[in-house]
Simulated scan of single mutants.
Amino acid sequence: MIVETPQLILRPVGTNDVSSLVELDSDPAVMRYVSGGAPTPRAVIEDWVVPRAVAEMSSRRGGGMWAALDRSSGEFVGWFSLRAPRHGTQPELELTYRLRRAAWGRGLATEGSQTLMRVAFDAPDTGRVFASTMAVNSASRRVMEKSGMRLTALHLGDDAETDGYERGEVEYELRRSDWESARFVWAVRGSTSELTA
């Protein structure tokens, strides 16, 4: 499924994206809240990230991983994903995203996230979409809030006694009941004109 937004083209991730994914994860600023700045090894992307993305896209659960391309230039700017938790039994999807530093501040994370919320809830089995980040990652938290999610949990890390809230992780969610009852300005339900198989 290819999804278009005003600024992005989201298409399924494939093996041809490995180099772009490696480059993205090599930026310490991009990886700051993911791995403390450490890059993801190429082998992990080739042997785990891309195969999992392909499997998720074909699972028919509404999930997948999309390469995000700048609509005007076609340049790879990052990725978005919806994935079912590996050991979960609930009808839920986790929203994740990662963008190149050059793409920050343009509203792309919010635009892509809102679009994938629509994709997620177009699947009739999705009961909830959730996302998490470090508590101090205010930019990502704003994206989640602009996507209609509400803060539902704060998980303190092992070193919470010394670092407190800064080391905690927050979880946001949007439940189907809220999606169906709320009036999101950006959500156009019932129309799939921007979605192509």
Rank of each mutant, 00 (worst) to 15 (best):
V3C: 05
P6N: 12
Q7S: 15
L8Q: 06
I9Y: 02
R11E: 05
P12R: 00
D17Q: 01
L21W: 10
E23S: 11
L24H: 00
S26Q: 06
D27M: 11
A29G: 07
V30N: 05
M31E: 08
M31D: 04
R32T: 11
R32E: 15
S35N: 13
G37T: 05
P39N: 05
P39D: 06
P41T: 10
R42W: 08
A43Q: 14
I45T: 01
D47V: 03
R52K: 11
R52E: 07
V54W: 02
V54L: 14
R60L: 12
G62N: 01
G64D: 04
W66F: 04
A67K: 00
D70T: 06
D70G: 02
R71G: 07
S72N: 13
S73V: 07
E75P: 06
V77H: 08
G78T: 02
W79D: 01
L82E: 03
L82R: 04
R83I: 00
R83M: 09
R83P: 01
A84V: 00
R86E: 12
G88Q: 10
E94H: 02
Y97S: 06
Y97M: 09
R98I: 02
R98Q: 09
R100H: 09
R100Y: 05
R101W: 04
A102N: 11
A102I: 08
R106P: 05
G107R: 04
A109P: 00
T110M: 03
T110G: 02
T110S: 15
L116I: 06
R118Y: 06
V119P: 02
V119N: 02
A120V: 04
F121A: 06
P124W: 04
T126P: 02
R128K: 15
V129I: 09
T133F: 02
M134C: 09
N137R: 12
S138V: 14
A139H: 13
A139L: 10
S140E: 09
R141K: 13
R142T: 09
M144F: 14
M144Q: 07
M144R: 03
E145I: 12
K146M: 08
S147Q: 01
G148M: 11
R150V: 13
L151N: 10
L154R: 15
L154Q: 14
H155T: 12
L156P: 14
G157V: 01
D158M: 09
A160S: 11
T162Q: 13
T162R: 14
D163S: 12
V170E: 11
V170K: 03
E171T: 15
R175P: 00
R175W: 00
S177M: 06
W179H: 04
W179Y: 15
W179A: 04
A182E: 15
R183M: 06
R183K: 11
W186T: 08
A187M: 07
A187I: 08
S191W: 07
S191V: 14
S193D: 15
E194D: 13
L195S: 02
L195E: 11
T196P: 06
